[in-house]
Design a binder for these strands. Sequence first.
DNA 1: CGAACGGTTGAGGCGCATCAACGGACGTGG
DNA 2: CCACGTCCGTTGATGCGCCTCAACCGTTCG
Lengths: 189, 189
Amino acid sequence: MRVNREEEIYGEGERAEYVFKVVSGAVRTCTIDMEGRRQIEGFYLPGDIFGFETDACHRFSAEAMSDAEVVALPRATLERAAADDKATAHALWVLAASELRHTREHMLVLGKKGAAERVVAFLLQMAARAKTDVLHLPMSRTDIADYLGLTIETVSRSFTRLERDRAIALDGARQVIFKDKGRLQALAA
Amino acid sequence: MRVNREEEIYGEGERAEYVFKVVSGAVRTCTIDMEGRRQIEGFYLPGDIFGFETDACHRFSAEAMSDAEVVALPRATLERAAADDKATAHALWVLAASELRHTREHMLVLGKKGAAERVVAFLLQMAARAKTDVLHLPMSRTDIADYLGLTIETVSRSFTRLERDRAIALDGARQVIFKDKGRLQALAA
DNA sequence: CGAACGGTTGAGGCGCATCAACGGACGTGG
DNA sequence: CCACGTCCGTTGATGCGCCTCAACCGTTCG
């Protein structure tokens, strides 16, 4: 299944009939509250699974941040397989566990008071996935801001300050080179 | 098992060998980050289950907010039961689902910008448990502040303002009477 | 009675949101 | 090819909201 940039994969409130896996590209899940503010729940890269819900309906919508390929697995099939096969059931369990872990970590990040702390936490989170010191960000500043509960201006200023302090280097807006992870860890607080 | 007020039930990082259920009293789970700031993950009232982890170790510590009785169930027993019995496995699944749901809602609350919005969200959360319009808060202002990522002063001021606006009434610091839930819903934004 | 604790209220400062302007990258059409 | 628009990101100026520090009050306990 192919989706274009900014295209919606599923909407908030729709019945959760499929679980998705990212093959290429990048996906975000988010929700809009009544004042129109957007909270991004997570970013999904190739290999990641999203749309996995414990309820009948999706609580977040999913959109492609770039042109992307995803595979859709019918939820009913999964549940049937889990009922028969212990290994599949265990895999589902592990998946739910990692969702919970991620959400809890995200909660802790949002509990942080300083903007710098949040941005650094985000960067370290992303760095943990890519093993290298050069990191390509598939998401816009707006996405990062809505993920961290900040504004694009504050995110941007945090990046420039980190660069000035020689903790990172920027090659364009979306290429981050880690220069001093130790300092970042310290700033994460 | 009986625990006294402010007594620790288990600590962050300890091996998660038991799952607990509140019989009487109230319990909080929380974590301390490196700057010494405390983030409360959740409040647990009679009937609630806590200490249920997907990992081997507890990621939060648990403390009694009042004198309390809890029952401890060995995790190994639960897992054995779940392997044999479909119904138990399903119950565990539902439990994990509700943890995830709660954490996600908490995340959304922490994503809110205004202090009033957060406090109202907290109050409505608590009100949803007690069916009545009179609510006894088992936790201190400090606990509420650390749950919402605010300071005790800001929480206190928010309460006072809500009372002045006739949305709630206060009978002492820990007794809240809901006067105008409609207005609260509106403020939740 | 004094000390300790929890909660409320007040005064002031800092940090982030807001509003605004600018610059570069990209695409389109003349 | 260049003029034009749009989008994204950065930077600057300003204001408001929450944190901080501080004083005060009521309750509980030694």
